[in-house]
Design a protein around this nucleic acid. Sequence first.
DNA 1: CGCGATTTGTTCAGCGGTTGAATTAAATGG
DNA 2: CCATTTAATTCAACCGCTGAACAAATCGCG
Lengths: 416, 416
Amino acid sequence: MWQCQVVTSASTAGAVRQGSLRELNLAVVLRRIAAADRPPSRAGLAAGTGLTRATVSAVVDDLIAGRLVAEAEPAPRTGAGRPARGLVLAADGPAGLGLEVNVDYLAACVVDLTGTVRHHLVRRADLRPVSPADALARLAGLAAEARAAAVRDGLTLAGAALAVPGLVGDGGLVRLAPNLGWRDVDVPDLLAGRPLVEAVDGVPPLVVDNEANLAALGELYAGPAGPRSFLHVTGEIGIGAGIVLDGALYRGARGWSGEIGHIPVQPQGRPCRCGGQGCLERYAGQEAILAAAGLPGAELPADTAATRLADLAGGGDPTTLAALADAGTALGVAVAGVVNLLDLDTVVLGGGYAPLAPWLCPPVVAEISRRVLTAAWSPVTVRPAVLGAQSAAVGGATSVVRRIVDRPVGWLARTP
Amino acid sequence: MWQCQVVTSASTAGAVRQGSLRELNLAVVLRRIAAADRPPSRAGLAAGTGLTRATVSAVVDDLIAGRLVAEAEPAPRTGAGRPARGLVLAADGPAGLGLEVNVDYLAACVVDLTGTVRHHLVRRADLRPVSPADALARLAGLAAEARAAAVRDGLTLAGAALAVPGLVGDGGLVRLAPNLGWRDVDVPDLLAGRPLVEAVDGVPPLVVDNEANLAALGELYAGPAGPRSFLHVTGEIGIGAGIVLDGALYRGARGWSGEIGHIPVQPQGRPCRCGGQGCLERYAGQEAILAAAGLPGAELPADTAATRLADLAGGGDPTTLAALADAGTALGVAVAGVVNLLDLDTVVLGGGYAPLAPWLCPPVVAEISRRVLTAAWSPVTVRPAVLGAQSAAVGGATSVVRRIVDRPVGWLARTP
DNA sequence: CGCGATTTGTTCAGCGGTTGAATTAAATGG
DNA sequence: CCATTTAATTCAACCGCTGAACAAATCGCG
């Protein structure tokens, strides 16, 4: 089935039934295997979780039978005693399909349970003149290629996530993607009849989400485990932010969080198309930077604009350097406000900002240290995204497999 | 024991052991009783939670034996069949003690399990010239009075929460409370030897927290049940914010979230004592409003300042009205940025802002509708705090009993 | 007033899943 | 080669939920 469905909440409000015991412990053990830095043994898991070795063995048997976990042959050498058999996430079980539609490219990637990117296809094309239906048809073609590659590897695609640069409503409806020219595009409807993933209980076949959200998830999963709080800023023509608080993506009351581009940085400043004045986007958005750098940016594909600016700045062009410094300062003012409010320890620059990070980070850091009250106590890290400019597709694919790790029963209960 | 302890996390990382089943279901059932708008029956709870009637009966028996739940005599009349016996939270079981130290008053209050404020004592006094040790000694006296009143009612104080206007670190250490003149004050240490509450497993005897955080919790519990996301802005000499996301208080990576007073609203504007420039506090803080209204505010007690401004504005004084309009606009600029980022549906004005809400709300709403991208889709409510200016103590006391509702085993396992 | 219908609450055997101890497995070291 | 050590499995016991049967309490209707 190829359709976006609302993730069924725990329905009966968290009541714990007999069977939930196993369900919860499967998740606990699997998460621990995923989070460990070296393959843990059953005994180690028992010690770590507080469960009995007997219980852990039973749970692990279920996980191995369901192809979620495998035994690592090279047991880690240690002192005396029977050697432990290390447990790792299976690399040949379920995998996630990550998709992205952006202004000047389509992308599809496959990520397996271990988080490894197994395939990554990018097709460059200016999609602004293309109708949503055509764009999605091309995307489906690319997705089919990725799927074929995954199947050749013996992987089972358990779900897909599509990143779009815009506001996404319930049911995969893209309310507004200004730079793509989309408005009220019903993605699941346009993709109907193109089954690309298996049906797995608890994993929606297709989730559509904002690119900034999925890119933030990608950063979260790529980094160390454990609850962390950071802001992932994606600079394209608009500026979006994915907000990760205590290790979970915060989506907002209605799912429309992250509109950092319209934080006022000069309340009486330049008018913005949103109706406000002095929004960050008018000072640190791609169009503003290009204009300040004296480049005729309107016609440039969005992606190459960032590369172009990075080239000029790398060559020492003073106009470009000044433009980036000003943009970084504006960004820093907005980010300082956010950090003051949310007490974050890290700010990640992604999307178009990733290649520009060498020139944007210094002014951002400067504004933060000037304006953030607690910066003296504990410093705030500002760094480029580790996944680079195209982390949204990878983040989406990873979020699919993460959902299986967080609730393995759905996968185990499927009819294989 | 009278000492602040770190809330012991679920230690073994969420592993579900045999006994956890009961532990979790006790919480599920109790939460449902607390959230219901009319006393539910055992059968109704079974239907709502998905548990069996047998299980619910067993769980409810435990709760009644532990004095957390009582049977409401007037059974709600309905059609045929054996009449149900309604279940309500017990009004004579555990209670929470809420304390507050502020610039010009001390407060103590007692809240029972149903959320009813049973006692509320306020002692006005300028505490700026008083040493932390003396201030806390006076507070302990007030707390002892409140405790005596609670004991007369047959209540058991299961924990205490202290609200302070400043940054609070681990272990109840007040790092900095500028308007009180406190710096690195070890509250639990200074209150040692004054046992005020019973020791209950899982409920720390004393939590020290920022007043804005506790006030936000008070607002959360006073409102309808269910996950909600809002910002609670407390305007005193400084400006603090409590952030509630999806029904839970967000404290930040290090517990220092909510510094909304230092969000930049005029990046090149007035210098601030934090080292930055153009912070919100310099435009909408109490000192800024008083100065703009032409009042010699430095000497006024903080609390009366707000009343004074409200009187003048109510009388139509044009200078005061202009000062409040300007402050409201600055506040609106900052809040609009926050709402854009976090997608909140409600903004609550509390503390010193509560009596000024009639004049502050309109400009705040105006800035939000101008600057918030999604305001057209779904409106943002701006309203004064329902608990008024002193919601922090009530919020703290309520948070104590809420913790029992969320994890009743701790209370039930005590040695009575 | 009496009896069936209906809904609530309790009792009890059954069972899934964890527990804890005993047992087996597989290595090291003297 | 055997004692020691640690890992993993087996199995009876037990905790707490399940489902169905049963008792309790009220209304409706004749």
